[in-house]
Structure formats: C-alpha cells, structure tokens
C-alpha cells in the first residue's frame, strides 16, 4: 500500500505543473523562469515515477533519471545564455526586453 495513491500523485503533478507554468508566464526574471521550467519538468518526472509505482515497472525510474539529466542540461544552457547576454552587454534578467525577434 503506497503512501500516495496514483490519483494523488497525478493531482500533485498537476499542481506542480501549474505552478511551474504560472511561474514561466508570470515572472519576468529569466532565472525564475528557468526555475519554473525545472518545476514543470519535475512535475512530468513525478508522473513517470507515479506511473512506475502504479504498474510496478522500473522504466518510470529510468525516465526520471533521464529527465533529471535533461533538466540539468537545460538549466546549464539557460544559465549559459544568461551569462552570454551579460557578456554581450545586456546586464538585465528581464525576459521581455529580449524581443529582437519580434515580427
């Protein structure tokens, strides 16, 4: 008997995803946006883990490891972009100012 039922897991994952999405949409700060993305990824990972526990399959754990790696890489690239922007002379973390590609 697990501590959480699968439904509770999914509910938690949804809440987490929603929080992450809201963070991405609402916060202007690039660092916070990266953090929110990580939260969203973690929500997805949580679903995998919950599913693995539900169907007693180890693949869910594997997928979590993969997502963990993906999150690390994504964070690394995002931070690199921020640093790069700093190096180019844009000392700001506001995502809305970086809209040179607007139509």
């Amino acid at each position: 008997m697990p501590a959480f039922s699968f439904n509770d897991t999914l509910l938690l994952a949804t809440v987490l995803f929603s929080v992450g999405l809201a963070g991405v949409l609402v916060r202007r700060d690039l660092v916070f946006m990266l953090m929110s993305l990580d939260i969203m990824l973690n929500a997805a990972a949580l679903v995998f883990v919950g599913a693995g526990a539900r169907w007693h399959d180890a693949t869910g754990q594997v997928m979590f490891v993969l997502i963990l790696a993906l999150a690390a890489v994504e964070t690394a690239v995002g931070l690199a972009i921020i640093v790069c922007l700093h190096a180019r002379g844009r000392p700001t973390l506001d995502a809305d100012t970086g809209n040179l590609l607007r139509g």
């Binding site: 999405l21 991405v24 949409l25 946006m33 995502a95 970086g98 040179l100 590609l101 607007r102 139509g103």
Partner: peptide, 18 residues
C-alpha cells in the same frame, strides 16, 4: 494579426503554447 503574435516575448509564446 499574425505579426502581433510575433512580438518576441518568450512568455507570450509560452502562454500561447499552453
């Protein structure tokens, strides 16, 4: 109108995707 969408703001893009 489509031009409006292409405003270069990442958050809006994300919002549309969502």
């Amino acid at each position: 109108l489509p031009g409006q969408f292409q405003n270069g703001r990442v958050r809006w893009y994300a919002a549309w995707i969502a």
